[in-house]
Amino acid sequence: MNKHEFLSVLSSYLKGFSADELNRVLNYYDELISDKIEAGENEYRVVHNLGDIRMISRQIQAELAGERLSSMHSAQRTAHNEGLIKNSEFRIQNEGLFNNNNSATNHQPPITNHQSNPAPCNLQAAPSKKGSTIAMVARLFSAPILIPVGIVFFVLFISAVFAVGGTILGLAVSSFACLLAVIPGAVLSATEGTPWALFTAGGLLIATGVLGILAIISYKLGKIFLKYLLKGAVASAKAFYGKKNKAVNSPNPQI
């Protein structure tokens, strides 16, 4: 049997192959036989050594059973591969010689099956598109309410600051004044010598101490008070605002 006969018999055995797949198989054997003949082997011997054609066809069919493509699909793949030929002009530098690694690494076809993992869903991130427009509208409409509320909070906070600060300042100043008043009192007691002056001076000293301690305590307390007032203001504002957002983002069962 010569090459031509081999190929027609093989073709007749490969039932169910698409035209494209069939051509591939036939071209493969055609080329192989031709190469062997070119290498000096006898055509009939080559064909004979290939073995039983029916066995060959069964083997190929079995191996490619799961991978058979429709002729459409393989045409697309061929087009893809053909398109890469431009890049492969320099892939073969010398017939019969190995290429070095470098040229083979260039122009790899962009066949990637890698899929990057989608970013984890963060429910606290921006709401769905539908939700965000509603949220925006809600914010716009609630602004007239939120702004006065915000002002109230702000005013409360400022007045608290003033109240606390004023108390501290007042206590401090009066304690300082008492301290100052001790001097003339001491002088008076020295010159006049009256026990009343002494009593005044002593009393003033005590007053200074007491008021000073009160000033320090109220300063410390005032700091804490203001800190919590501020926290409370921020938290309540967040809660108020957050509640609005939550209501907007609750899943709509109709979607």
Partner: peptide
């Protein structure tokens, strides 16, 4: 790996 090849030579 060292370069492109064809059927006969691969075998």
């Amino acid at each position: 790996m060292r370069g492109d090849s064809y059927g006969y030579r691969i075998i």
